[in-house]
Design a protein around this nucleic acid. Structure first.
Length: 371
RNA sequence: GUGGCCGUAGUGUAACGGUAACAUGGAAGCCUGUGGAGCUUCAGUCCCGGGUUCAACUCCCGGCGGUCGCC
């Protein structure tokens, strides 16, 4: 459960108590869909300052299978991660053409991309799987709409998400595990509000804002968050799913969000985009060939303490594994350090200044959805 | 020595009597509840010399280089 220790405007900092330990909020979770955060060992991940990660129960249930994980004593033991674990429900895979065949009130009819066989996946299935593999936080199965659809379509997915959320709550049977509901509503403020009110009535341990960061403009994104956050129970954690760009996170925290997850830092790392206070460095660029300075001066991560830009550049160019590993270590350390600075600014009641200074320095000129 | 085939971006390959394309490599950018190097954009090419033709990377001759076979 969430213990709020300090507030600064809408932003707040505190501690989220999970079965496997405490997590300081606001926090960022790296994504380990298949049980591992790409290119990192659990020790390396812990060294980045990560206190919680998110895996995907649905995908793990396809391979290696729930029994395999249960036989190991649960997901924590299986992947050798002692700290917090959220599990995603499979809802996001509705957006993927590789999985979805069709949706109905009952659930999702999907194709298993590993074998090609087809089956039905219900809210009850998702909760049962998450209960069995024993993550700290289970997510409800939600009906994630594509960006750009009509308000009518958004309303339908919202109602179905609420219906499924109720079924998830009824199916949930693991006392050690928290259950979060997921709000939808697309970019329509009234729908965001409606969704929040419906979920609130059911009652969850935490609330997520779903269906965001999938193509909408920044204005639409933050309007949607603002419209929904305030209608969830204030004492419960608020989780913006899929958000991982530092400039987005600092905005969302100022609107009251406590929790984030995204592939953004790790995927950018693999592709050579490394985070610094001044913005993103394209580490594969030829200009870093021969550069003996670290990725970011003053950074305490393993990559910056031991290696030069020139080395990381070269490792990425020649596709050596260590290049991706060092890049991921740096980006995740940057993220966790950034989250700590956010928490500290809230504790000091200087969050607004922190946000302004951060956004002024972090170069976002080249980003597509900047407006 | 001789006969066949072949010489097109850095590399590997297309097409065509009307000034050229694909892959890869190169350069820049993108990535938000992860499809393990994905997507977008850009740069870059007709072995040399003659001839035929309005027009030759394309057809003909010679040279040079490669490759396979034969002596």
């Amino acid at each position: 459960m969430l213990e709020i220790k300090q507030e600064d405007g809408e932003a707040r900092t505190g501690v989220l108590k999970l079965n496997s330990g405490k997590v300081k909020t606001p926090f960022f979770m790296p994504v380990g869909t298949k049980g591992g955060v790409k290119n990192l060992t659990p020790e390396q991940l812990e060294d980045t300052g990560t206190e919680c990660l998110i895996s995907n129960a649905f995908i793990l249930s396809l391979r290696p299978g729930v029994k395999s994980i249960a036989d190991h004593g649960g997901l924590h033991e299986f992947m050798k991660w002692k700290k917090g674990i959220f599990t995603d429900s499979g809802g996001f895979q509705i957006l993927s053409k590789d999985f979805l065949i069709k949706k109905s009130e009952k659930g999702v009819y999907f194709k298993n991309p590993y074998g090609g066989d087809k089956s039905m996946f219900t809210p009850e299935d998702s909760i049962k799987i998450q209960n069995l593999i024993g993550s700290d936080v289970a997510m409800c199965l939600d009906d994630v709409p594509h960006y750009g659809k009509s308000e009518k379509y958004m309303l339908d997915t919202l109602n179905r998400t609420t219906d499924w959320a109720l079924r998830c709550k009824e199916a949930h049977a693991n006392e050690k595990q928290l259950l979060f509901g997921i709000g939808q509503g697309g970019i329509f403020p009234e729908l965001r509000k409606k969704s929040a009110q419906q979920l609130n009535k059911i009652g969850f341990d935490g609330y997520a804002l779903g269906g965001l960061c999938i193509g909408e403009s920044k204005k639409e994104l933050f309007n949607s968050i603002a419209a929904q956050v305030k209608h969830f129970d204030k004492d419960k954690p608020k989780y913006v799913m899929g958000m991982g760009s530092p400039d987005d996170i600092v905005e969302a925290v100022s609107l009251g969000a406590d929790c984030f997850d995204s592939i953004y830092p790790t995927k950018n790392a693999r592709h050579g985009s490394l985070f610094t206070k001044e913005g993103t460095l394209k580490m594969k660029s030829r200009k870093y060939n021969g550069d003996t300075s670290p990725i970011e001066e003053g950074c305490k991560c393993y990559a910056c303490k031991n290696y030069s830009k020139g080395f990381v550049h070269h490792m990425l160019i020649v596709h050596e594994q260590i290049g991706k590993t060092l890049a991921a270590i740096h980006n995740l350390t940057f993220m966790q350090n950034f989250m700590e600075e956010i928490r500290e600014a809230i504790r000091n009641n200087t969050f607004d200044e922190f946000k302004k200074e951060f956004l002024a320095n972090f170069n976002v000129e080249n980003k597509v959805n900047n407006r």
